[in-house]
Design a protein around this nucleic acid. Sequence first.
RNA 1: GGCCCCUUCGUCUAGCGGCCUAGGAUGCCACCCUUUCAAGGUGGAGACACGGGUUCGAGUCCCGUAGGGGCUACCA
Length: 489
Amino acid sequence: MRTRYAPSPTGPQHIGGIRSALFAWLYARRHGGQFILRIEDTDQKRTAPGSIELIEESFDWLGLDIDEGPRQGGAFGPYIQSERLTLYQTWAQWLVDQGHAYKCFATAEELKELRAAGTGYDRRYRDVPAEQAAELEARGMPYVIRFKMPLTGVTAGRDMIRDAVEFDNAQLQDAVLLKSDGYPTYHLAHIVDDHYMKISHITRAVEWLPSFPLHLQLWKSFGWEKPQYAHLPVLLNPNGKGKLSKRKQQFADAGASVPVLVHEFIDAGYLPEAVINFLANIGWNFGDNQEMFSRQEAIQRFDLKDVNPANSAYPIKKLTWLNSQYIQTSTVEELARLLKPVLQEAGYTVVDERLLEVAPTLKVRLKTLKDVVPMAGFFFADWAAFQAPPPDILLQRKMDSVSTAMVLEESIPVLQSLEDFSSGSQHGVMAHLAKDLGLKNGQVFGTLRAAVTGQKVSPPTFETMEILGRDESVRRLKLALQSLAQPTN
RNA sequence: GGCCCCUUCGUCUAGCGGCCUAGGAUGCCACCCUUUCAAGGUGGAGACACGGGUUCGAGUCCCGUAGGGGCUACCA
């Protein structure tokens, strides 16, 4: 079994393409086959430099390994279509020689008029005598090679996801196979390549379904054994309106921008495992009412036949949940490894030892890796530069500066005299103090939290103080006390 | 316009004629737990687009309608 992902190198890798690629990859892995990356750069105008690297980086990040492709090579290369031009030209000419295709000399203007008139191309060059065509060609007239689509009858095919599909041949046009610049169109190129590369299962988006009969006829004309086709459903915008596009990201999702490019997922702090799990759950499901599963588990169960034919809205909110689940179930070491670059990028100097202490408090609190910055960035800031928080952060519910100062004053000696500065013992004594002061735990703990972190929201207070250490914690409590003594202006 | 595909809770989905008074997840709401934020626990609201058939019996099969998506390029 050999499957492939065949993107056009038109820019950054879009998540929709990855979803299609994932299904092809899962299928190949399931059957112990090969997964191939082929670059379809037959449209020179749309080709963007650097795209191939972007695509490869995306696959690397996601952990979707490629068996054959531009970078890894393979026995059926080259894997970039622009490097296979003569192959397409040869076969296009063969089709002409066999009477399955013809040279069309219609100019861009003619075509434009035809289109304006509401009719498509009228096959005006389909039946010109060979001598006449040769003469036009000799005169240097540019031409394309078009396929002679059967004029009558139906073309019936089988799609792995939808089963039987049928098309009326009369509805189809004589598609261009080879463009006047000598490049093939997708129609020709994919068939020649999939044949030569021995692709057994072609997966592609549903938008190709209308041209499926053309491809079927092409396989027939070549006399090659055709692979099985699976037309995959596509991702729609989160509001269900229109295909998910990388161009217009402004869909109605509470004004929040939704990630659609692979690098946007990386930047937003999602884990590749979560993204894979997320994508596999759209249009396919693991079964057993199980939402979370590893790629290995998915490989064991995946089948193209089980793919839901319906398009689906992009359920991006589920990714957030899945991501938090993956963060929760990752080990402290793994989480620390993932968090480090995020903190560094935010400008913090990260000491591994400290990160390892902080990470456990973060596991249940982070939705994305990025959340670490507002939540726990202060651990990695310059402690000497710590400033006491303003009253609106320091003062807890139903607390004023007097009661806050009292809590601070009472807490300091208690903490200083604590034998063991672990969060557990801190909790014990502070809960006791709260009771003595006639305050709620939340009021006392909250005051300490604010004083020590400078934030309203943070990891648990006592765990935070344990990491900060007794001296630094007490220093910060005193700082808060001093700031309270200052006249508020 | 023509052609093609699709149609179960807001969303992702299970369901492949009787096991469905339609299951799970997410999101939302409530309660519990609780030192903030989370996490976790419990519960709740929430769907078979509509109309015809076929059948003893339809969410499941067929037809139509409606709605959605796509194709209709010398783009893929």
